[in-house]
């Protein structure tokens, strides 16, 4: 990667940044639960009362099987859904509606088909009623950085699935959000593109540590990307394990070949399997 030369200096800066930030809870969930169709004959408890905090600058993965309520949890942190019980605070303020200081990536790239790649990135500003022209250079630089140089003017239909998700990363980051929320953003990609996207994401994230909450059902992805992995049980979801991931940053894909990495993955897999035993 071209960023390798700058890596040591960045690591120093980011370590200092993170040490200072560690003391602050950026995201705090207190007894948050979600019940769909409450008061009807078939209420669905999607999420059992859940509490945890995320420090500023921390990358946390939410790992769990499909339908365990992890996406629901992320949508509530984003302010897109209201919890049925409990409270969520982001940056010390209760979360009641979406906020501009949050960047979000969904399972699908959700690009506007009539806009070019760069205009899709800039749509973040358009949506917030902020001037778009001022940020064109930054959007272009971001697209270059995720490997889309020369594709700025392509429409989404002319891009591959991986390329579209790269555009979506840029759109989530272009307004420099303090909190980045990602809902299984790479689950629709093949294994190779997925590894590549993990690298791209790490490269982007390690440049400037934002707080990140990443929902996934891939154990390796969770361990590779995160500082902490929260394991969720089946519906109604609750957090059954909180594992710290010790690997130094910046990480490359080779960390996935180490014994320690595979031991952690094995431990998490064991947890999930035990949980699923009837």
């Amino acid at each position: 990667m071209s960023a390798a030369g700058a890596a040591p200096m960045r690591a120093v800066v980011s370590l200092a940044e993170r040490a200072a930030a560690r003391s602050v809870d950026h995201v705090a969930l207190d007894g948050v639960a979600k019940i769909y169709n409450p008061g009807t004959r078939q209420p669905v408890e999607a999420l059992a009362p859940t509490s945890f905090t995320i420090k500023a600058g921390e990358f946390v993965a939410l790992l769990g099987p499909s339908g365990c309520g992890k996406s629901t949890l992320l949508m509530m942190v984003a302010g897109l859904e209201a919890p049925s019980a409990g409270s969520i605070a982001v940056g010390g303020k209760p979360m009641t509606a979406p906020r501009p200081e949050i960047g979000i990536m969904f399972q699908d790239p959700t690009l506007l088909p009539w806009k070019s790649a760069i205009d899709n990135v800039l749509f973040a500003f358009q949506a917030m009623n902020r001037p778009v022209a001022l940020h064109r250079d930054r959007a272009a630089a971001l697209l270059d950085r995720v490997g889309l140089a020369g594709f700025h003017d392509r429409k989404p239909r002319q891009l591959s699935g991986g390329m579209r998700q790269r555009v979506a990363i840029c759109r989530a980051l272009v307004h420099e959000p303090e909190l980045l929320l990602m809902d299984e953003p790479f689950s629709a990609l093949d294994a190779l593109s997925r590894d590549e996207m993990n690298l791209v994401l790490m490269n982007m994230w390690e440049g400037r540590h934002r707080t990140a909450l990443f929902v996934t059902h891939s154990i390796r992805e969770a361990v590779y990307l995160s500082d902490r992995v929260l394991v969720m049980s089946r519906r109604p979801g609750r957090i059954v394990e909180d594992v710290r991931i010790p690997f130094t940053r910046p990480r490359d894909l080779a960390v996935g070949e180490t014994v320690a990495f595979n031991e952690i993955c094995g431990h998490l897999r064991g947890k999930i399997e035990r949980m699923h035993r009837p």
Binding site: A78, G79, L80, A97, P98, R99, P100, I102, I104, F106, D108, T110, L112, W114, F123, A124, Q126, A127, M128, N129
Partner: peptide, 27 residues
């Protein structure tokens, strides 16, 4: 109009008018 596009607008704090003008109408 793709619901996920509307949700995207909401996540980016777009006003209903902005969502209409920039997403629903062109879509």
């Amino acid at each position: 109009t793709d619901r996920s596009l509307v949700r995207l607008c909401r996540s980016m704090t777009a006003t209903p008018w902005r969502t209409f003008w920039s997403v629903r109408l062109p879509a």
